[in-house]
């Protein structure tokens, strides 16, 4: 059930309450129906929908923070300033508690912007924007998914026998329902930041020593298992947010379908999109902080610790 389908079915209904219908139209698409890769370069496939959605989410997070941060004042803080200070304080405390009072502050900008970006990503399905076409050849949309599928008839304007899609602006959906984004973020935060700080604080030698964890002859045998264990961190952190957001999207599109796209299940949107979106963004951020802290944490007992 694609959002485009939702929109077009909605268009066929009489609309007594335009706002309710508009909200129902933002039923998220499920990832099986996500737009196929639109560009293949050097053997890598790119999905322009995910890229555009990520850019929009990042811009939205930036603009949100800039709007909250206008007219800062020490004596009479506005409501936005209080919200922003709460967010910053939360993550500063989190970083200092998990990584350590001295090093924690250094990681704050990364951790905070990760949370804001994921938050903006998870909120995207609340904005009902359908698939838009610019300059493409007209086609007959048999399955109402808003996209050209092979086999659908089209008017061949330039006579080349191939459908020219023009530019398609993708319907809004959470970019986190595409596994690419969580995996990329996991690589950035766990591998580059986490393992990078491991090398920075313990040196290359100390970092490599972790892979031979118990040490000695057993350590050499444990090497491949330790490598797989490190890879499992990436899998667990990225599939968690993907599965949750994707599952919420499935639930909401199913319920919207059961309601015939006539009434928006606002309570479910509130729970699955807003509440679970915030919680999962926070959990991702917190786990990233924890993985960084496993490499970069200050020694819990500098006196006689050998751990």
């Amino acid at each position: 059930m694609h959002r485009g389908e939702v929109m077009s079915r909605m268009g066929k209904k009489a609309a007594p309450a335009a706002l309710v219908l508009l909200l129902a139209g933002c039923g998220p698409a499920h990832a099986g129906m996500r737009n196929p890769p639109s560009l293949v370069l050097w053997g890598m496939s790119f999905n322009h929908a995910t890229i555009i959605h990520c850019a929009i989410a990042a811009a939205a997070a930036y603009i949100l923070v800039r709007l909250l941060a206008v007219n800062l004042s020490r004596d009479h803080p506005r409501r936005g300033q209080v919200v922003l200070e709460t967010i910053v304080d939360t993550f500063l405390v989190l970083a200092r508690q998990t990584i350590g009072p001295k090093r924690g502050g250094w990681y704050l900008p990364y951790i905070g912007s990760l949370f804001l970006f994921l938050f903006a990503c998870n909120m995207m399905s609340l904005f009902p924007v359908p698939n838009l076409h610019f300059g493409g050849e007209t086609f007959n949309d048999y399955n109402n998914n808003g996209l050209y599928d092979p086999g659908e008839p089209f008017i061949d304007m330039n006579g080349d026998g191939v459908h020219n899609p023009g530019f398609q602006f993708p319907a809004f959906e959470e970019p986190t329902t595409d596994l690419t984004l969580p995996l990329t973020l996991a690589v950035i935060f766990v591998v580059i930041l986490g393992h990078g700080s491991g090398i920075r604080f313990h040196g290359v030698r100390g970092y490599l020593k972790e892979y031979f964890s118990p040490g000695g002859l057993i350590g050499i045998g444990m090497f491949p298992l330790n490598v797989v264990g490190k890879l499992a961190e990436l899998i667990s952190i990225s599939f968690r947010i993907f599965g949750n957001i994707f599952g919420g999207a499935i639930i909401m599109s199913t319920v919207s379908g059961l309601l015939h796209y006539f009434v928006a299940p606002l309570g479910m949107y509130g729970y699955f999109s807003v509440f679970c979106g915030v919680i999962q963004a926070f959990v991702f951020t917190m786990l990233a902080t924890t993985y960084i802290s496993m490499e970069a944490a200050e020694d819990p007992d500098p006196g006689h610790g050998d751990a």
Partner: peptide, 20 residues
């Protein structure tokens, strides 16, 4: 609260492997 969330997230790693 923070330890609870981390603990729950780590408990679910097995479930995530099953999902994979």
């Amino acid at each position: 609260a923070i330890l609870m969330m981390i603990g729950q997230a780590w408990t679910q790693t097995g479930g995530i492997f099953a999902l994979v």
